[in-house]
């Protein structure tokens, strides 16, 4: 892997569950429970998992939009985990986020041009005519016309709104863009446009993406490496091709088998797992997946498997994969 832009070590985010008149703590949501990964310069790391697995909390923690309970986040070698708001400010320029819902993440009373220009103005990088010229250039980069700068968000379609969000993220020339389900709210034909735009922009600017999505096909398409999360932990991480060709964790295998393939001759949907994802308030002991796993052994209920290297940078947290054995 190339030089690391972002290093996350043993990140944890726990939320207290309070109940009763005295708001006493009755439990803890283990939203993120010991996540470590590194993201290289110009690399895209896909983070997949089902709802409640903690993928969005990881994204927000990386940007310090939520305060991690413990762990370390290093951006370009510098520890930003405990920086104060003012200390963090210069770093904010190098990390940006694109959210899922382009309807909720744009201020309806600001023009598109003001929305995209605001970060530039806030950081005092340009004003007046220079600002306008920069915003116009950003509009062109994301496939919008500069004359649309005067329009308000409601005058744009969903795909165009997501382009505005991308332009806003680009405005400060970041090194890292966190994309939290950026295409999930869009129609299929528009999804492809936005994914292509994200790929093109990365080629031009060389920034890194932390790309979060529940859609495996989208993640497979855009990522260089993919991490699979389950109940607050990474259970498998590998190069994209390696992960999809040779999934080693039973959960990854089940996820892949659950995706309906757009070919009537492909094998029919075979649900490989029963039941629902357990609650992150009281995650199962040992391996959190053992309650739904086809291969669960007695040991899985008590021993928590660590993420170990299974060769070619393929890491997997499953007792079946100790040594060279693999689950089939």
């Amino acid at each position: 892997m190339t030089e690391a832009l972002l290093e996350v070590t043993d990140l944890k985010k726990h939320y207290p569950v309070r109940a009763g008149v005295l708001r006493r703590q009755v439990g803890t949501v283990h939203a993120v429970d010991g996540v470590s990964f590194a993201l290289g310069i110009g690399e895209t790391l896909g983070l997949v998992g089902e709802s409640g697995c903690g993928k969005s909390t990881v994204a927000r923690s990386v940007l310090r939009l939520v305060e991690p309970t413990s762990g370390q986040i290093r951006l370009r070698g510098e520890d930003i985990t405990h920086l104060s708001k003012t200390e963090l400010r210069p770093h904010r320029r190098s990390m940006q986020i694109v959210f899922q819902d382009p309807f909720a993440s744009l201020n309806p009373r600001m023009t598109a041009g003001d929305i995209v220009g605001e970060p530039i103005a806030v950081h005092g990088l340009a004003s007046g005519k220079a600002l306008e010229a920069r915003v116009a250039k950003l509009f062109e980069q994301v496939g919008l016309r500069p004359d649309q700068m005067r329009n308000f968000p409601h005058q744009f379609s969903g795909g165009q709104r997501q382009r505005i969000c991308i332009a806003r993220a680009l405005a400060l020339e970041p090194r890292l863009i966190v994309c939290d389900e950026p295409v999930s709210a869009l129609d299929v034909s528009i999804q492809a446009q936005v994914i292509n735009l994200l790929i093109d922009l990365q080629r031009q600017h060389g920034f890194s993406y932390l790309f979060i999505a529940h859609d495996l096909a989208v993640v497979a398409h855009i990522s260089h490496r993919v991490a699979v999360m389950y109940l607050g932990r990474i259970v498998e991480i590998a190069d994209k091709d390696e992960l999809f060709r040779n999934p080693r964790h039973p959960y990854t295998q089940a996820l892949l088998a659950s995706v309906p393939i757009a070919n009537p001759h492909a094998k029919k949907i075979a649900p490989l797992v029963d039941g629902d994802v357990p609650s992150p308030v009281n995650p199962p002991s040992g391996c959190a997946f053992h309650t739904r796993c086809r291969f669960a052994m007695e040991r899985c209920k008590t021993e928590r498997p660590a993420l170990v290297d299974a060769g070619v940078g393929h890491q997997v947290a499953c007792l079946l994969n100790e040594g060279t054995g693999r689950s089939q």
Binding site: V188, L216, A220
Partner: peptide, 8 residues
């Protein structure tokens, strides 16, 4: 326009 899985 739909990406395929696996994308190998």
């Amino acid at each position: 326009s739909i990406p395929a899985v696996p994308a190998s």
